[in-house]
Nucleic acid binder design. Sequence first.
DNA 1: GACGCTTCTGATGCATGCAACATAGGCTTT
DNA 2: AAAGCCTATGTTGCATGCATCAGAAGCGTC
Lengths: 226, 226
Amino acid sequence: MQDDLEVVREAADRDGLLDRIRRLVLGGDFPPGAVVPEAFLAQEFDVSRTPIREALKQLQHEGLVEIRPKVGTFVREPTRREIIELFQLKESLEGLAASLLARRGEVKELSVLRRNLEESEMAALTHDTDAYARLVHEFHWTIVRGSDNHKLVEHYERLMNQLAYQRLVLRTVEHPGRLEASTREHRAVLDMIEHKDPFGAESAMRNHVHASSREALTDPAQDRRS
Amino acid sequence: MQDDLEVVREAADRDGLLDRIRRLVLGGDFPPGAVVPEAFLAQEFDVSRTPIREALKQLQHEGLVEIRPKVGTFVREPTRREIIELFQLKESLEGLAASLLARRGEVKELSVLRRNLEESEMAALTHDTDAYARLVHEFHWTIVRGSDNHKLVEHYERLMNQLAYQRLVLRTVEHPGRLEASTREHRAVLDMIEHKDPFGAESAMRNHVHASSREALTDPAQDRRS
DNA sequence: GACGCTTCTGATGCATGCAACATAGGCTTT
DNA sequence: AAAGCCTATGTTGCATGCATCAGAAGCGTC
């Protein structure tokens, strides 16, 4: 039993090496400059450089780091322009997801979304921004997964990874009045889905993402890189 | 100079290793079963297994192959369902691209698109399906690139790679009457872009992609995997 | 003092070797 | 003959060593 746990844990470490490095990069523990070299990560995770290299290549492919040949691996923070581009994509993909979910009219996710919305309203009332952020996150993911389009989920995953930098997170809930507006928009989306109105759901979702992205983009912390 | 050419060629080989393997996989030269092992590719391209492994990992991440740990790498042909999913994404992304391009109202790509449309009409009249397919390909790519959203281009690239299996290509032009309809739809899209009507352009593009995907999906060669 | 060249260093890129494991086929047993 | 075990094989996964090269620091020249 002890052995089993050991094996499982180590296997998880191996499988999750990419994720662990990704978290390191996204977590902001590293300067936006050069990520400590492969050798460091190798020692840190107690593996050879080879799997580290593989993981870094993936991250490069995901757009999170930039590997300059023969030089090193650098944390690749998105420019303001790229953030705008990513939000445009987000709007489109989530719109599609809402549309597909509305067309399915599946019941399972509907109850989850209803419950989520209730809790969100509660969190908004008590100004529990942490809980609210988590609920928003779940709301969007539930809809995307509920689209039942796995390729869409994959692309969305990639997209969100690029938007997952610590500095960009939780911004949408820091604006006064945004919580209430956001909740209203969520309700509008859910209404359209419940009415099995794909077009309306897509429209409502796009409006919502557009609005929330505007808030995120006006955040002063982003003026750095324009 | 001779040396320079050598260096450039070899550098291109290295940079393009991923592309070359991808072409091998997409080209259908391999059975849908197991891709010949890393050692074969290593010998084929006269490199070590290490860079081969890196490339294969990328392809796995792109969804083109499946790497079963300790077993081997398998060509991963998309199921019919996945093709449907991918076309839904294509519709959404190209719709977004058309919308963005219409909003920009850029002149450069407009002339390219106009010219492309003229040549397409010519190819349709002469039933030159090869030329037509190439022109359609360029038309869509011109619009996507013209969106001036590089992240969109990246995601579109990934998407198209997954749709690039040899067996799926050129299907849309094999249906009677499709060439004319397709040309009409292209013109509608271009009209909307020229009128700087983002909403109309998106709608027209989505209609077009939807129509052409329906043709592609009704192809009998796809009934195999349902 | 500034500019250009050379050397030096640190990191990556790749090749190679070995161990681990999934699968297949034969072998034993019933 | 069927079922289960066991060995054999082929492949991957990883560790390590070496060559290569970008960039920096030091040196010499103008």
